[in-house]
Design a protein around this nucleic acid. Structure first.
Lengths: 266, 266
DNA sequence: CAGTGGTCTAGACCACCCT
DNA sequence: GGGTGGTCTAGACCACTGG
């Protein structure tokens, strides 16, 4: 690239920009901005080493901890990578460093005013099935299965199916079912309090004719299948299931590289 | 849950565990471990407030910055969330806080010894198409299209199709094609140096009969479609395309909650 | 108002890398 | 050995929250 600017007496051009300590913006954020635009303008090209943190601190008149925090910002943005004893290097753009989150889904599930939940199935299942294996239960151990269609703004959003451990210490089957259905409903407050950990797996799936109809999607459409397996505080599998949701309802986007400087408009 | 342990004189039981400053493990990591197991054992149940950072610092005989760093570790793990002026709270487990990365893919693409790239198509395309819109080009502007099948350990891994801006300032068409093909090949070193930013989008797709055959997957299989659009340092779209890869070849997994304490074996 | 997290200093020492 | 990032101190002040 020909717009890579060159150094001037070994010091980057932008070293002249001063950090205003009375600004609302913290000093580390200002320094991070400076470094980011330096990188963006090619003062520190990819693969190049950034000035040492101590140098940056002196250059901009801040403490080493503050300079360090500035570099940490860039590191979290995936723009640079640190190597102990070697230095901090500008990273090339690539698919690594990209991260996808499920905010699109959690935002919808948090918008409770516009949510409708339709229970399609709620039952005790005693026959064997994969869920018994996943939940580490004997094949004849009953599990509670609940299937729900969740609508957002009266449009189908996702189809959920969960298999929960049937705790024999609980009262009766009926009340059990009730509480399970209710607590499942409360899951829309996003988050369990009796679960210690879990693992999510994102898959692709071809919709069955029935599911496509329920989700108002075309026959033969594909969608994400988001599997979840939760463990309780005894480290026992407690709940297994999945969401079916199309990528139109749940976009998975990841921005990489430098997106500041009014570039967001494009 | 009945295994929520109670406080003892208002102080958590584990406050007795000391931080060993001569240990290889940094003090902040030790404190993070202590807090993590405290949470895991129910000393700080979900929705509960953690002791103030200053309190933690005094309790464990470290500086406030160190205590702060310990809490930051838990925050990055998604276990707690901070609120200025209010405190630090233990988060419930849920799909929020989960993050998926493409390490599975970048690991494969980095394993160059076991990679084979087969060019299926390399041409200049002059006819209109969606790629012209995405790349913000006039419909008759030629673009370079390359389709590749990437094999890992002699098994089909992914199918890639890219559309790159055809720079008229470049020499001849032939040499252009050569360099593009070559540089595209070099992309397997993971990362561009002439690209400033990009956006990735993860979609689901139904494989065409041809693609399924190429990828040695069953007819009618579904797969991920990972779209990428890259911008150069002039903020102009420079390259657009996608990878097709099945979720078996590229598992997308996200662990949430507390996974320490030898629980990884399960 | 008191309590909390957020920022910041001006150093220090350590662990690691490379020459 | 000299340079780099990684950790740590013992405070300070600020910004925000809530009663």
């Amino acid at each position: 690239m020909n717009l890579i600017k060159k150094f001037k007496n070994g010091a980057p051009l932008s070293a002249e920009r001063k950090i205003n300590k009375r600004s609302r913006l913290p000093a580390y954020a200002q320094l991070a901005d400076i470094l980011r635009t330096d990188i963006s303008h090619g003062e520190y090209p990819p693969e190049e080493r950034l000035p040492a943190e101590a140098t940056l601190a002196k250059m901009h008149g801040v403490s080493t901890m503050t300079a360090r925090q500035a570099v940490s910002v860039l590191e979290e943005e995936g723009l640079v990578s640190r190597a102990q004893g070697k230095g901090t290097y500008v990273r090339k753009i690539g698919v690594s460093g990209s991260r996808f989150n499920l905010d699109a889904m959690t935002d919808v599930l948090a918008d409770k005013d516009n949510l409708t939940v339709r229970i399609l199935k709620a039952a005790i299942k005693k026959k064997p099935g994969i869920e018994k294996e996943v939940l580490d239960l004997p094949p004849d151990q009953p599990v509670v299965v609940v299937e729900r269609l969740i609508l957002h703004q009266n449009e189908p959003f996702t189809l959920q199916e969960t298999y929960s451990n049937f705790d024999p210490k609980s009262p009766t089957v009926e009340s059990m079912l009730d509480t399970v259905v209710l607590t499942e409903l409360l899951f829309h407050e996003e988050g369990f309090s009796n679960i210690k950990r879990g693992v999510l797996r994102l898959l692709t799936t071809l919709l069955s004719e029935r599911d496509a109809e329920l989700l108002k999607l075309e026959k033969g459409s594909t969608a994400f299948k988001l599997e979840h397996l939760y463990y309780d505080f005894d480290n026992k599998p407690a709940s297994f299931g999945w969401f079916i949701v199309s990528h139109e309802k749940m976009p998975l986007i990841s921005k990489i590289g430098i997106w500041d400087e009014q570039t967001t408009q494009s």
